[in-house]
Lab assay of single mutants.
Amino acid sequence: DHDVVPEDKFQETLHLKEKEGCPQAFHALLSWLLTQDSTAILDFWRVLFKDYNLERYGRLQPILDSFPKDVDLSQPRKGRKPPAVPKALVPPPRLPTKRKASEEARAAAPAALTPRGTASPGSQLKAKPPKKPESSAEQQRLPLGNGIQTMSASVQRAVAMSSGDVPGARGAVEGILIQQVFESGGSKKCIQVGGEFYTPSKFEDSGSGKNKARSSSGPKPLVRAKGAQGAAPGGGEARLGQQGSVPAPLALPSDPQLHQKNEDECAVCRDGGELICCDGCPRAFHLACLSPPLREIPSGTWRCSSCLQATVQEVQPRAEEPRPQEPPVETPLPPGLRSAGEEVRGPPGEPLAGMDTTLVYKHLPAPPSAAPLPGLDSSALHPLLCVGPEGQQNLAPGARCGVCGDGTDVLRCTHCAAAFHWRCHFPAGTSRPGTGLRCRSCSGDVTPAPVEGVLAPSPARLAPGPAKDDTASHEPALHRDDLESLLSEHTFDGILQWAIQSMARPAAPFPS
């Protein structure tokens, strides 16, 4: 592969990997390779389809078979030569091979799209000592099968071997295949498990690692696999990028399955594409389908809103127990993405979901129960707010008499603000006073009005108090039968009158 990737590009890729991570280095090298001529790309395919690569990765054979028959990708048995050289000459001794072996032994695996480039050397060096003999053996194999790289107009793939297949390693990572398949204008990513390549439709969760975000852009890794992070704060999961590491605690105790298979379609829109997988259930989501939507993949363990709600429900009964003089119970939860139609709101002032922060849900004790107040519409209280300059209440639009249902020339009671006709409430011909108009209920007259088809109010509507207090003497005590009587009149003013009279009014101040 030294004929494909020059030394300066190799060093530039290593520097970019240390600065921005393996995914960015892979993407940059792939983009550079696509700008080369067809001879360089053909050399790339020839390096990929060597015999030892085909033996190690069985899924490469179907890719090789898909090439046109007129494309010669065979390799000479006596060494490598550029395709432009007409004579089959043995190339001179390859010093770059020693360079590659020494550099890969030092860096474990470079971040390139060629056999030198995919593992994360920093994480491997940190986690190597417990498994040094086995990992050293794996390093000797890295130059042979560490990076199976493929690129063409139909298929483009980048393979990364790992030393996680050490025997006896619980939940060992089998390997990473960062794979971009450009077929019919689409893009897919796969993962390699035990020599087999699994596409998103049959993606397997190998051991402790999972394909957290099938994305090839942005600074985030394709698999949430930063070796420096180790395990999740809650004892979460091992990262795919942690090559040759000792077994780590796999999943939280509440995880239903340690080796679950995540779905390959969004649980909201039932469509495929780039998904984020939940650590607590097999569901996966688009970032845009979450509520609120996320802009980037959160670091650490992530769970959907259903799993978060289940966790909150487990903690909430203990938080609601009476604990005198104790601060509110704080339950730190990872930043969760909410699927459509589901929402768990945190306290005000918290950062938005999706940031690399930890939301704190506070379970406050329930407030003391209070008697429910009568629910009145805002339009129902409008007549009470229509007060004239002299303190006389004006008529609201649409006000109707509670007896006849007519809204023409209605009066407004100064005591309960109900609309009424003087002739309907006082049919006996009582003279109307000039000021202080009161309806039949507030004036103490319980004589029913002779209106055909309208039920008369119940005599129990009024329960006047002592006459010594004029204001308190007109406080009506309405009961269920009074409400039914008012409802039978089918008037809004009657219902409003009952609601206003049912509310307690402050006692009249004593004259000074």
Rank of each mutant, 00 (worst) to 15 (best):
A340V: 07
V246I: 06
A417K: 00
P450A: 06
D409Y: 03
M503F: 15
A428F: 13
G349D: 08
A417F: 13
P389C: 13
T357I: 08
V329M: 00
D271M: 14
R303I: 06
G405Q: 13
V312R: 12
D409R: 03
P351R: 12
R480I: 14
L384D: 12
P459H: 05
Q260A: 06
L455F: 12
L250F: 12
P347C: 04
P466T: 14
V360D: 04
P511Y: 15
K468V: 06
F420R: 02
G434M: 08
Q243H: 13
T471M: 09
W302F: 07
G341C: 15
T331Q: 09
G407L: 10
H286E: 14
G444A: 06
S254T: 14
D469H: 12
E489S: 02
D470F: 06
K468Q: 11
R345I: 07
Q325G: 14
T358A: 11
V315N: 11
D469S: 07
C424P: 03
D445Y: 08
G272M: 06
G244A: 15
H382F: 15
G391D: 10
P433K: 08
E263F: 11
C278G: 09
T301W: 14
V315Q: 06
Q313C: 08
C401D: 04
W422L: 10
R295K: 06
A288V: 11
S291A: 14
G465E: 11
L250S: 10
S254H: 09
V344R: 11
R461H: 15
R440H: 00
A449K: 11
P511T: 10
P457C: 13
D406L: 05
A428M: 13
A366G: 10
V410T: 09
E489L: 00
L352S: 07
G336Y: 05
C413L: 02
D279H: 10
A499S: 02
Q497H: 13
K468A: 04
L337R: 05
E343T: 10
Q242I: 12
P457K: 12
S443M: 09
A248Y: 14
R283T: 11
E489R: 01
K362N: 02
H474S: 09
L496T: 03
K261C: 10
E343K: 12
T435G: 11
P292Y: 12
A463G: 10
T311R: 11
S339I: 06
C304Y: 11
L258T: 06
V312Y: 10
S458E: 11
D469M: 03
